[in-house]
């Protein structure tokens, strides 16, 4: 048995990693829950956001945490426009078309990034990247603690917005009862685009939280989105709370499997658990029964 001196830091580190996964999954599950589509462009958009955060720092000298303040609205706008003017019109109301359009977008974005920046892996250097804080017996990297705090704050903000604002209520209305929402005067095309924009804005924030400690290349986003897909299924498709809890859970599973199986096998734990959940609880750990 491993002592608590190792277990507690592993748990905390798992939660920190999980928070970032949760934010990627939050965007994905939001889009799935409202538009009922799986956004295959999610990974490519995360990669694009990583490049945006990278160049904001390299060229303009902007700290990634400051960059989040304007990259989030910028990517909200990009997501809104993509859904409203590209994905929505190209889909002609057919879900299978949407699937292909988002897949096509992913290929286009990734190859454009590959063309512009080549396959090189890049990193940025920040003075605080290796700072640690001591909590109990655990030493935690400052950027990871910041990421955890920001993700929890965003999830709380989103939860309140969904419950108490008109737009939030309209999003929930469209998610559950599209025709009823349309006939209540809610512009469904607009709500779809707002939702897609919110999902994309989550990616911009994720990118800014990742870039201090993570490398980027034109495929960097995909690793996260694969895990985010498993979280969305674990948490129950379309469930915001499920994405949050599922993300944290997956982070901890990864951390513990890394501890017991060795660092390089850490992610195996996630997919073993994923298969078990699909076998025994196909509606997800926290999802509503269909």
């Amino acid at each position: 048995m491993v002592s608590s001196v190792i277990l507690v830091p592993a748990l905390l580190n798992g939660l920190m990693t999980g928070a970032v996964y949760a934010l990627v999954a939050l965007g994905l599950t939001l889009i799935y829950g409202v538009l009922h589509i799986i956004n295959f462009a999610h990974g490519a958009l995360l990669t694009a956001a990583l490049f945006a955060a990278f160049f904001a720092n390299k060229l303009l000298g902007i700290d990634p945490y400051v960059a989040a303040l304007f990259l989030a609205p910028l990517f909200f706008g990009i997501g809104y426009a993509l859904q409203r003017f590209v994905i929505g019109p190209a889909a002609h109301g057919e879900d299978r078309n949407i699937l292909l359009v988002t897949l096509g977008l992913a290929v286009m974005i990734e190859n454009a990034l590959l063309y512009a920046f080549r396959a090189d892996t890049r990193t940025i250097n920040l003075s605080y990247a290796f700072d640690v804080v001591e909590i109990g017996n655990s030493f935690l990297a400052v950027p990871r603690v910041v990421a955890f705090g920001v993700v929890v704050a965003i999830a709380a903000l989103l939860w309140f917005a969904m419950r108490w604002t008109d737009t939030g209520k309209a999003i929930r209305a469209v998610a559950k009862e599209k025709l009823g929402a349309e006939l209540s005067g809610i512009n469904v095309a607009h709500i779809y685009a707002v939702t897609f924009g919110l999902g994309t804005a989550c990616l911009a924030v994720t990118a800014c939280l990742l870039i201090p400690t993570y490398y980027i290349n034109p495929h960097a986003g995909n690793a996260f989105v694969l895990i985010a897909f498993t979280i969305v299924v674990l948490g129950g498709m379309g469930s915001v709370a499920g994405a949050m809890l599922g993300g944290l859970f997956v982070g901890v599973v990864e951390s513990f499997s890394g501890l017991y199986l060795g660092e390089s096998l850490g992610q195996i734990g996630i997919f073993v658990m994923f298969i078990l959940v699909l076998l025994f609880r196909p509606s997800g750990l926290f999802g509503e029964r269909a």
Binding site: D166, K169, A170, R172, A173, K176, E177, L179, G180, A181, L183, S184, G185, I186
Partner: peptide, 17 residues
């Protein structure tokens, strides 16, 4: 076609969206 996951009051307010 009401919104089953919302309260009666929220349903009504969405009618005045």
């Amino acid at each position: 076609r009401i919104f089953p996951n919302m309260t009666v009051r929220e349903n009504l307010d969405l009618g005045a969206y």
